[in-house]
């Protein structure tokens, strides 16, 4: 063993994460080499002191009074959710909208349509965790595995709209399914998550009626955002395609 190899191994040795052979070789080197011995002694001493102080800092540290009560109250609300309040998976949509998450949800936060969070999820450009290669079955299986619920995906009727894949995301304090679509080469994100009351509309958004249904329409950081609700599920569409076109696409998923 060479001196320059000692340091990483010494660190691992502090955590007991070296093999017996490595430990023996390390010790043999330290017997011979005074300089490495001094270094590792100093390292161990710094490490032990710092670790002890860090542990002191949390020793006896208690969460603020009230946190435990708040959590227990929320758990009671969650645990006692009546069947009717659970996510409805029956979605009369004519498009491959995955039904989401179902894990019931917290009603303590006011729902909001935060365009920043929505656009952020779109622009992170996360890879789909499952790709709709041969069809929608793989997406279905993935969503069921992730969320613990079987989900049936209706077929889209807009032929230009192609389901690329899906991943589980998080929006407005709830799990959401993030479906990635391709529309003539443009990327469209569709997020679906449980509705938890009336959404607060951002000041810069406007309400538009298409065939009698309301859509919240706006743009944020150069992306167009359209939000709509169906049967206790909120759908958000984010893309850089033209706003009117995005509303048309959103409207095409009506039953």
């Amino acid at each position: 063993m060479e001196c320059r190899e000692v340091e990483r191994l010494a660190d691992l040795s502090l955590d007991g994460e070296v093999s017996a052979g490595e430990q023996a070789e390390l010790e043999a080197h330290l017997m011979r080499c005074a300089e490495c011995r001094a270094r590792t002694t100093t390292l161990r001493w710094m490490h032990d002191s710092i670790r002890a102080k860090l542990q002191d800092s949390v020793d006896g540290l208690e969460p603020p009074a009230g946190l435990k009560d708040r959590i227990c109250t929320e758990l009671r609300v969650e645990g006692g959710a009546a069947p009717g309040t659970a996510w409805r998976a029956a979605l009369p949509l004519s498009m491959a909208l995955a039904v989401v998450a179902i894990l019931s949800w917290s009603r303590s936060h006011a729902p909001s349509l935060d365009p920043e969070e929505t656009v952020d999820r779109h622009t992170q450009n996360m890879m789909p965790e499952v790709r709709a290669r041969g069809g929608e079955q793989e997406v279905q299986r993935y969503i069921q595995k992730q969320l613990g619920h079987p989900v049936e995906l209706p077929q889209p009727d807009d032929r230009n709209l192609r389901l690329v894949g899906a991943r589980v995301s998080h929006l407005d304090n709830a799990d959401a399914v993030h479906l990635l679509y391709d529309h003539r080469g443009a990327r469209i994100s569709v997020f679906a998550n449980p509705k938890r009351g009336n959404m607060a509309m951002p000041a810069s958004f406007s309400r538009r009626l298409v065939e009698g249904r309301p859509y919240l329409v706006g743009s944020h950081r150069g992306y167009n955002v359209v939000a709509t609700e169906r049967d206790d599920v909120v759908y958000r569409f984010v893309s850089d395609v033209d706003g009117a076109e995005l509303v048309r696409i959103a409207a095409s998923v009506q039953p």
């Binding site: 069947p83 659970a86 998976a89 179902i102 079987p150």
Partner: peptide, 15 residues
């Protein structure tokens, strides 16, 4: 229409 199986009742006190 499609639906999903309801999850078994979770046990809050155990949790």
């Amino acid at each position: 229409m499609f639906g999903f199986k309801r999850k078994p009742q979770r046990n809050r006190s155990e949790f």
